[in-house]
């Protein structure tokens, strides 16, 4: 464990908590892409199947349980509890365009052709594009509530911090995982446009709401 990965995990945890709080306190999931949240739930389910077979540390197992629980709690809030506020009309990204290529790629490029490893690889590829429906929805509605933009900033920062962690681990431990690194870079690059708008939001006139041009 290093400080960059710890900061990344905390940023990830913060993002998930911000999202849960936003939906719970505003009793609405307006502006939130249910499709992205489904992708994240699939991602963590496919990645954490080793929860019971491969004990790394108490921290690792605890975080896996938290991320899984929060992912499904978010799905429950969106599709059951506050279903009436779910914005079907703007959450229209064709997720099959994400699922099919990532499944094919995980079968073709992986570390080991075993079920668990292919599922892990699939989760890495899927996570890198899982935010697209959300970013697409924000660009379609033309704006995001400030709390949603904080959620996206924390979520985007998590994998950016992981990239620093991988640089550190390469020099400190000679460890590198090309699949995670390439997917992590893609994932972070997808947020660049958003990061720019989020950071310059303060200097743009009447930027009360986050507006992302289509």
């Amino acid at each position: 464990m290093n400080v960059f990965r710890l900061a990344g995990d905390i940023s990830h945890l913060l993002a998930i908590i911000i999202l849960l709080l936003k939906i719970w306190t505003s009793r609405s999931c307006a502006g939130i892409s249910g499709k992205s949240q489904v992708m994240f739930a699939i991602t963590y389910t496919a990645r954490y199947l080793d929860l019971f077979t491969n004990f790394i540390s108490l921290y690792n197992s605890t975080m896996k349980i938290i991320f899984l629980g929060a992912a499904y709690a978010t799905l429950y809030l969106i599709y059951v509890r506050f279903k009436a506020t779910y914005d079907h009309n703007h959450d229209t990204f064709r997720v099959e365009f994400l699922l099919i290529p990532t499944v094919i790629l995980s079968v073709l490029i992986n570390h080991d052709f075993s079920p668990l490893e292919i599922l892990w690889t699939f989760s890495i590829y899927l996570e890198s594009v899982a935010i697209l429906p959300q970013l697409f929805m924000v660009s379609k509605t033309g704006e995001a509530e400030s709390i949603t933009s904080h959620y996206l900033f924390a979520l985007g920062s998590y994998r950016a911090l992981y990239i620093i962690n991988w640089v550190y681990r390469y020099y400190a431990e000679g460890f590198y995982d090309l699949i995670a690194i390439v997917a992590g870079v893609v994932q972070t690059v997808l947020y660049c446009d958003f990061f720019y708008l989020y950071i310059t939001k303060g200097s743009r006139a009447n930027a009360t709401e986050m507006s992302i041009e289509a």
Binding site: D9, N54, I56, D112
Partner: peptide, 10 residues
């Protein structure tokens, strides 16, 4: 062909 490895990251 890519090294096998135990995944210790989240």
């Amino acid at each position: 062909w890519l090294p096998k490895r135990k995944h210790d990251e989240l």
